[in-house]
Simulated assay, not measured.
Amino acid sequence: MPRYEFRCRSCGDTFEVNRPMAEADRPAPCPQGHADTVKLLSTVALTGRGGAASTGGIPTGGGCCGGACGC
């Protein structure tokens, strides 16, 4: 079941709600009972198989130029 993150405009609390996708746009009161909440946009990082699909599974250096510049 998807998890949606909300923020209360009254108290500033951030909280999560598990609910079906069909109810994604339904308002959610904060745990403190305030009704003025907003659903936050979440970013989800998805990678290919094993997390290194673009390198064929071979680990690479890192940094700004693949680790070759020593930065």
Rank of each mutant, 00 (worst) to 15 (best):
R3E: 11
G50V: 03
I58P: 00
C30T: 07
S54H: 05
A68N: 07
A45Q: 15
R26K: 12
T14D: 03
M1F: 06
S42C: 13
P27T: 02
P31N: 11
S42P: 01
M21A: 03
A22V: 12
P59E: 12
P31E: 08
A68Y: 14
P59H: 06
C71Q: 11
C8V: 03
H34Y: 04
G12N: 11
T37D: 05
T47A: 14
T60V: 10
G66W: 13
A35L: 14
S10N: 10
G70L: 12
A53Y: 03
A24I: 09
T55I: 04
G62D: 14
P2G: 08
C8A: 09
R49C: 01
A52I: 04
P59V: 09
D25T: 13
M1L: 10
C71S: 15
G57K: 09
P2S: 10
F15M: 03
P27Y: 06
R3T: 10
Y4Q: 04
A24K: 14
C64G: 12
I58G: 00
K39D: 00
M21H: 03
A68P: 01
V17N: 02
P59L: 10
C11F: 01
P31V: 06
C30E: 10
L40R: 07
I58W: 04
P31R: 08
T43A: 09
E23H: 13
P2D: 09
T60P: 00
R26C: 11
A52Q: 15
M1C: 05
S54D: 09
D13C: 11
G56N: 00
